[in-house]
Design a binder for these strands. Sequence first.
DNA 1: TTCGGGTATTTGTGATCACAAATGCGCCCA
DNA 2: TGGGCGCATTTGTGATCACAAATACCCGAA
Lengths: 224, 224
Amino acid sequence: MIAESLLESADLPTHERVYRALRGRILAGEMAPGDQVTLRGLAEALGVSMTPAREAVRRLVAERALEMTTSGRAEIPTPGLARLAELFRARELLEPELAMRALPNADKAAISTLRAIDQTIDGYLAKGDAVGYVRANTAFHTTLYGLANAPALMALVESVWLQTAPVMRRIYGRLGTAALTDYHEAALAALASGDTTALADAIRQDVVQGAALLRQVALDESDL
Amino acid sequence: MIAESLLESADLPTHERVYRALRGRILAGEMAPGDQVTLRGLAEALGVSMTPAREAVRRLVAERALEMTTSGRAEIPTPGLARLAELFRARELLEPELAMRALPNADKAAISTLRAIDQTIDGYLAKGDAVGYVRANTAFHTTLYGLANAPALMALVESVWLQTAPVMRRIYGRLGTAALTDYHEAALAALASGDTTALADAIRQDVVQGAALLRQVALDESDL
DNA sequence: TTCGGGTATTTGTGATCACAAATGCGCCCA
DNA sequence: TGGGCGCATTTGTGATCACAAATACCCGAA
C-alpha cells in the first residue's frame, strides 16, 4: 500500500505524483531490497492508470532507485558490498564539496534549523526508530547541501542516496545506536565558525563512518 | 531525423532501442542545446508508437540529458556557466577515482587500445572534426573507466557526460585545436608505468583543462 | 510426503484514442 | 505596413486494450 500524501498533490501531473510517492517511500527506507513494484499494483494503489505508473517506474530505474529484472519487472536493488563501497566513495568525494559550497550561504537561521534537525536525529537514535532516523538524517544532509545552490552536484548525490537508502534502514535497524561519533556536531561547529576545511572534513568523516558501519554489519550477516 | 542503427537492434525492447538511438546522438554531440524532441516526432522517425518514445524521453530526462519545459516539452538543456562549472567539478572529483581503479586492470592490450584511440583523437583534432573529436574523446575515457569495474561510479560520470556533451561540440567546434596540452599521453605513460598518483593527476588536469577551455569560450560569446 | 508438469493468473509491452493545453500561423484591422 | 487577435494544428497526458511471456499455483504421480 502506498500512502498517497494528499497534501502535496497540488495539481501536479499524475506521473509526477506517482514518482514522488514512490521515491519518498524509498528514500525513507520504507522499502527493503528485493521488494517488487508492479505496474498494476502501483497504479491501483494510487488510483491511476498504468501509463503514469510506468513513467514513474522508468524514471526511478533511470536514477537506479529501482532495478529491472530480465523479465522487465521492477524491484528494489540488493547492492552487494562492492557496489555499496562505490556509492559511499562517491558520497565521500561529492558531499564535502557540497558542504563547502553551502557554508557561505549558511546564516544563523539555517544553522539553527540544522541544529534542530540534528536533535531530532538524536531522539530517533535513542528510541531506536530506524525509519525516523534515516528520514531525519536525510533531511540534515539535504538541508545543508540545499544551501549550496548547486543543483547538478545535488542531483548526483541524491541519486546515490536513493541507491543506499534501502540498506541504510537495515543497517541502523540492526546496530541501533552503537558507538557512533556525532560528526554532525562537528559540522555545525565548523559551520558556525566559518571553517571551510573543518566542515568538509566533518562531512567526509560522517560518510566514512557510515561506510565503516556498513562493512561491519555486512560481516555479521553473511548475506546482504 | 534519427538514424536508426539497425545493427544493434538485436531484439531489444522497443523503448530501449529508442533510448539508445537518442542517447547516442546526444553523446556524440549531434544535438545542440535548445533542440526540441517531440514524442510523435521521435516515434515516427523510428517507426514506433508514442508509448516507447515517451519512456525513452522520460529516462533521458531523469538522467538530465533532456529537460522538460513547463508545458511538458522535452529539449536539449542549455546549461549556464555555473551549471557547467558544477559538472566539470564533478568530473574532476569522480574521474580520477575511476582512473585509479582502472589502473590495476590495464594490461598491455588495454593500454595499446587506449593509445590507438588517442591517436584517432589527434587525427580528428588535426582535421577539425568536432563531432569525431567528441566521439573519440568519449571513447577514450569510457574505455579507460570501463576497466575500473565500478558500475555505480561509472553511471554517475556518464550522467555528467550526457549533460556536457551538447556544449562540448560547440566548444571544440569553435576553438579547433588551439593550445591544448595532451594529458592523455601523460595518462598513458602513468598507466604503463603503474604510477597511480600520476595517472589520477593526468586525468584531473585533463578535466581541468576542459573546464578552462570552456570558460574561455564562454567569455568570447556572451550567450551560452 | 515430495517432486514435476501443466494450467490459470499475473505482469510488462506497445498501440491507439480522447482530451486539453500550448503553440504558431495567418488574417484582419488600425 | 505593423501589431494583435483568433483559430487550426501540434503536442503532452492519461486511459484502455490486445498480446505474449513469465510467474505462481495446484493437482497428481512416485
